[in-house]
Simulated assay, not measured.
Amino acid sequence: MKNCCFCINLRTATLFLALLGTLTHFYSGLTLTAMADDFQDFDSGTVFGLTMYSYLSGLACLAGAIGVLKNNVKKLRFFNIYYWADLGLHTGFAVASAAMLFTLHTEICKEIIQDEHVDFDMETCEAAYIQSGWIITLAMAINMLLKLHFAFAIHSYTKRMQQEQEESSFYQQNDTIVIDYTPMPVPTVINEKQHSKDDVIYVAGKEFIPDDKKQQQQ
């Protein structure tokens, strides 16, 4: 994938998703913390789990934003793993919600009809409920497809950054060329005069001159 949504740079899209996730998840965590007393009728364990998940998700998104700004592959990889895990959880929740939505329509319509202020009959209520259920299911499906597209965008950017850093480290390790140097032997200059002096032979205290040299001197 080269671009997100066909026109947005992968780095810009990843940074935007990370910052948006940081703001929304931390806001959700703070809201749940502030309204903890209002959820006394709900399971305290569920509320605590949702609160902790919001804070942890905010930290994961913050790590992704830092990874984009600092070109940190480890933080980007962590954000990428979190986003795919979050997508899996949301997909499971959406499927379960859609299944419950279409299996509880009779019970819900019975409770609605019992209200004296409602003029619906059973058939009208079920028709309206099923139509609303399909609209909600379609909205959840579109949301999941968008999140899947964003997950692939984050994965592509993380993979590209990892490849760039690996190539950069490879070139840094191989940019030094070692050349073996073998020193050339230094030529020895022979002093001819000194050599000629060393070749003189003395016999009985007199210089011995061979016959061939005598002929040359004559």
Rank of each mutant, 00 (worst) to 15 (best):
A151S: 14
V68Q: 01
G88P: 07
P210W: 01
A13R: 07
A34H: 00
E116C: 05
I136R: 00
L19S: 07
P210C: 01
L89Y: 10
D121C: 01
P183R: 11
M184R: 10
T46P: 06
M122P: 04
K206P: 03
Y202G: 01
Y83L: 11
V186R: 13
Q114L: 08
L145K: 08
F120S: 09
D121M: 00
C109P: 08
L56V: 03
G45W: 02
D198H: 15
I154F: 04
V118L: 09
D180P: 02
A99S: 10
A65H: 04
D119V: 04
D86Y: 10
M35R: 00
V178E: 08
F152E: 08
P210Y: 02
I108F: 06
Q114I: 00
T33L: 15
H149A: 11
I201H: 02
L145P: 01
V203A: 09
M144L: 15
L146Q: 14
H90A: 08
T33K: 11
L146M: 15
Q131K: 11
Q215S: 13
F26D: 00
L15S: 13
A18K: 07
L32M: 03
S57C: 02
P210V: 01
T14R: 05
V178Q: 05
Y53A: 13
D119H: 08
L32H: 00
Q163M: 13
L62R: 03
D43H: 10
G64N: 05
I201R: 04
S169G: 00
S44D: 07
A18E: 06
T46K: 13
A13K: 07
D198E: 15
C61D: 06
Y55S: 00
L19I: 13
G205Y: 04
I190K: 14
T124N: 11
F152H: 12
T176E: 15
K214L: 12
A13D: 02
G58N: 11
P187H: 12
L69V: 10
L62T: 04
V95F: 10
H105C: 14
I177H: 08
K70W: 00
T91V: 04
D115Y: 10
A96F: 07
Q131T: 12
D199F: 15
N3D: 06
F152V: 12
L56W: 02
G58S: 11
L32W: 00
S156D: 14
A98R: 06
A60P: 04
M161H: 01
